[in-house]
Write a protein that binds this DNA or RNA. Sequence first.
DNA 1: CATTGTGGATAGTGAAACTATCCGCTCTCG
DNA 2: CGAGAGCGGATAGTTTCACTATCCACAATG
Lengths: 215, 215
Amino acid sequence: MKIAALSAASGLSLPTLKFYLREGLLHPGQSTAVNQAEYDQGHLRRLRLIRALSELGGLGLADIRRVLAAVDDEDRPLHDTFGVAQDAMAARPHAPSPAARAATDRFIHRHGLRVRPEAEVRALLAESVDALHDFALCGPAHDHDAVAAALDPLLPETLAAADRALASVPAAAPRGEQLLVTVVGTIAWEAALLALRRLALEHASALRAAPPRAG
Amino acid sequence: MKIAALSAASGLSLPTLKFYLREGLLHPGQSTAVNQAEYDQGHLRRLRLIRALSELGGLGLADIRRVLAAVDDEDRPLHDTFGVAQDAMAARPHAPSPAARAATDRFIHRHGLRVRPEAEVRALLAESVDALHDFALCGPAHDHDAVAAALDPLLPETLAAADRALASVPAAAPRGEQLLVTVVGTIAWEAALLALRRLALEHASALRAAPPRAG
DNA sequence: CATTGTGGATAGTGAAACTATCCGCTCTCG
DNA sequence: CGAGAGCGGATAGTTTCACTATCCACAATG
């Protein structure tokens, strides 16, 4: 497969492919001459991964590069790599309030969750706790801990779902395959759950606005 | 409150406030002279809303403007406004495959969900169905409908949760308040649920990597 | 052997979200 | 009352991001 074929197969413009090659997001093809190279299914898979991270996950190219680097590092243990990928996926200019951050950390500790102290996801959760608190979305006159506590009833089912998700990854599959399933699975399922939730909200809102006539 | 005070209270730089005023995201203050104006708590609330939409929801200023316009249009029915806000929140360069789109539409019809035919959320869901399908994340050899069907068991609880969320909005509250709760609530809860899910994934991954010693 | 395609390099583009200056006026404080 | 800080309004500049366009010398192909 030459670059034009890769472009056609991936749906990405030829200049974009060259750009990704330059940036190191896509590894060079197998050289057949000084100015000719051959691309394969691996390149196509890589491109689908990049697009999924970009479009579905909303990641910038810099963060995508970090995810790819972690995925490519064969010596890295699986869990470790997943952590790096998670951090890259959460990378944003976070600025949760110290109070929200502390409440979040207490929430994690209280439930005995094994989450790295430096994991970005802590800031991610703290940010939303801040918003729920600031807009009094968990009822009025609550502190950050009370807001975090509102998440308590959701945790068991969320933990069970996460465990099921990881259990569905075939343990015998090669490392790259397992990572792809966990990393892309994370963002694809997230996107699906979000969309489902919004669907449900629109439906519920429609019902309230104009209830179906009984009978 | 003069603009410098508004800047201090909101944490946004003075040039940024001027920029928002220019862009019409923030309504002008009450003029007290040709070059003096007074700002109030309403401006502060508006700024918090803008920042929540931007940082938490990841919306661009153009989409934020659409949300604000819908919220500001007092004559618009509540459900209608929520639809506009939802569409703005989902606005991205979507390009789901026709197959995924069709499967999504069938999913919605099959469950009798009242979702506008033109609602952006359909494309949102279709996109994730595409990804789940492309990466065979619902098991191999399935078509788009089978992938969508994997969401079936999640729907009842999601619908119930959406109904609870809307039920928690005080019906007696003024329109602006109700909208704030639904719009900000939508994105803040989304962010919280996502973070919770990632927390659970990291925890589950850690358990698999190094199970706690029994005893 | 002419056309088309290719890898590699360099430079340019357009959108997005601010940021910096300037100006003439006004409020405030000594 | 007068100086200086602060203000609104306007114009222009900056940075980052993710591409996109050109150019080149050379290979592949009909």
